[in-house]
Simulated assay, not measured.
Amino acid sequence: MEEAILKPSTLWTIGVCLVVIGVAAHWFGWPALLWFPRSVLEGLEWAPAALLEAIAASPTTVGLIALGIVLMVAARIWTGRKG
C-alpha cells in the first residue's frame, strides 16, 4: 500500500500553525505580520544586479562556482537522501 501524503500528525501541525497565524493577525494586524517578509524581499532586490555585475566582472570565476554547485547537486541526487 502507498503511504498517505498527509498524515493526521501533519494535518494537526498545519492546523495549529494556521490558528497561531490567525490569532497573531487578529492581535497585531496583517501589516505588522507581513512587515518582516516584505523587508527581507526588499533587501534581496540587489541580488540580481550583483549577480549580473559579478558575471560581467569575472565570468570564469562565476562559471567555476556554478559548475561546482551543479556537481554538488548531482552528487546529492545520485546518492539519495541518507539521513
Rank of each mutant, 00 (worst) to 15 (best):
M1I: 05
E2C: 12
E2H: 10
E3I: 05
E3W: 00
E3D: 14
A4E: 13
A4G: 08
A4F: 04
I5W: 10
K7L: 11
P8N: 10
S9R: 11
S9G: 07
S9Y: 07
T10P: 00
L11K: 14
L11R: 14
L11Q: 15
W12S: 15
I14F: 10
G15K: 01
G15I: 00
C17D: 05
L18A: 12
V19S: 10
V19G: 09
V20W: 03
I21V: 15
G22R: 00
A24F: 00
A24S: 08
A25E: 09
H26S: 09
F28T: 00
F28M: 09
G29S: 15
W30V: 04
W30R: 05
W30E: 05
P31I: 03
P31S: 10
P31Y: 03
A32S: 10
A32F: 08
L33T: 05
L34Q: 07
F36S: 06
F36V: 11
R38Q: 00
R38V: 05
V40T: 06
V40Y: 07
V40I: 12
V40W: 06
L41Y: 07
L41A: 13
L41F: 06
E42M: 09
E42Q: 08
E42I: 01
E42V: 01
G43S: 04
L44D: 11
W46K: 15
W46L: 13
W46T: 08
A47Q: 11
A47V: 12
A47M: 12
A47D: 03
P48N: 08
P48M: 03
A49F: 05
A50S: 12
L52A: 11
L52S: 14
L52V: 08
E53H: 06
A54H: 04
I55L: 11
A57K: 10
A57W: 03
A57Y: 02
S58D: 13
S58R: 06
P59M: 04
T60Q: 15
T60L: 15
T61E: 12
V62H: 01
V62W: 01
V62R: 02
V62K: 01
V62Y: 00
V62A: 10
G63Y: 06
L64K: 14
I65Y: 03
I65T: 02
A66M: 05
A66H: 02
A66K: 01
A66Y: 03
A66I: 01
L67D: 05
L67V: 07
L67P: 01
L67N: 07
L67Q: 02
L67S: 12
G68F: 04
I69W: 08
I69Y: 09
V70D: 03
L71P: 02
L71Q: 05
M72Y: 06
M72Q: 10
V73M: 13
V73A: 15
A74M: 13
A74K: 11
A75T: 11
I77P: 06
I77S: 15
I77A: 15
W78D: 11
W78N: 14
W78F: 12
W78Y: 13
T79F: 07
T79C: 02
G80D: 04
G80P: 00
G80K: 02
